[in-house]
Simulated assay, not measured.
Amino acid sequence: MGKQATIFLNFLSLLEICLAASPDLNSSTDEHSILAIKSHIITSYPNNILATNWSQGTSFCTWIGVTCSRRRPRVTALNLFNMSLEGTIAKEIGNLSFLTYLNIRNNTFNGVIPDEIGNLRRLRVLEMSFNQLSGEIPPSFEL
């Protein structure tokens, strides 16, 4: 085999490794973001479900309130409706780039809506009523 063929095969092997690793890096970002969101939440939900269910070692796509794409392990929906949660909305919410549905309605979230929510370009449904949020919707959020 010639030198050019060897270089080409090495390039293809490297490309294959990069493409295979790419979904893991993106899903890793989603998992870290959800865990950061959890760290800003205090729950009085029966059995402290987020503490026991939202944990490393299990796929975040199986966590209560989390829905992932069927094609890849990316968070597409976060439904925390009426879960007796209180705390603030973590800025890491803006890292969930595939998020299309966010429902934190009927909890006790407080503080301001982070500017990073404007990064959610795919977001189509946003339910935040019946919380104790203050301030305005960040200008970075496009309706």
Rank of each mutant, 00 (worst) to 15 (best):
Pro114Tyr: 14
Ser28Glu: 07
Ser44Gly: 06
Pro138Thr: 03
Ser97Met: 10
Gly2Leu: 09
Leu25Cys: 03
Asn47Tyr: 15
Gly135Arg: 05
Glu116Val: 09
Ala5Cys: 05
Phe141Gly: 03
Ser39Cys: 09
Thr6Ala: 13
Tyr101Lys: 08
Glu127Val: 01
Gly118Thr: 14
Thr29Ile: 15
Leu15Gly: 04
Thr62Ser: 12
Asn79Leu: 02
Ile93His: 02
Leu120Gln: 12
Phe109Leu: 14
Arg70Gly: 13
Pro138Lys: 03
Asn47Phe: 13
His40Gly: 10
Leu80Val: 08
Ala90Val: 01
Ile89Leu: 13
Gly57Ala: 13
Ser140Leu: 03
Leu96His: 04
Ala5Asn: 08
Asn103Glu: 14
Leu126Ala: 14
Leu14Asn: 05
Pro114Cys: 15
Cys68Ala: 01
Leu85Val: 04
Pro114His: 13
Pro114Asn: 14
Tyr101Ala: 02
Pro73His: 01
Ser134Phe: 04
Asn79Val: 06
Asn82Lys: 13
Asn48Lys: 11
Thr76His: 01
Thr100Ala: 11
Ser84Arg: 05
Ser33Thr: 08
Val112Lys: 14
Gly135Asn: 05
Leu126Asn: 10
Trp54Arg: 00
Tyr45Ala: 06
Ser22Cys: 06
His40Thr: 15
Asn79Ala: 02
Gln4Phe: 12
Thr52Ile: 13
Glu16Cys: 13
Leu50Asn: 04
Leu15Phe: 07
Thr108Glu: 10
Pro23Phe: 02
Gly118Asp: 12
Ile41Ala: 10
Glu142Lys: 10
Leu102Gly: 09
Thr6Phe: 09
Phe8Tyr: 11
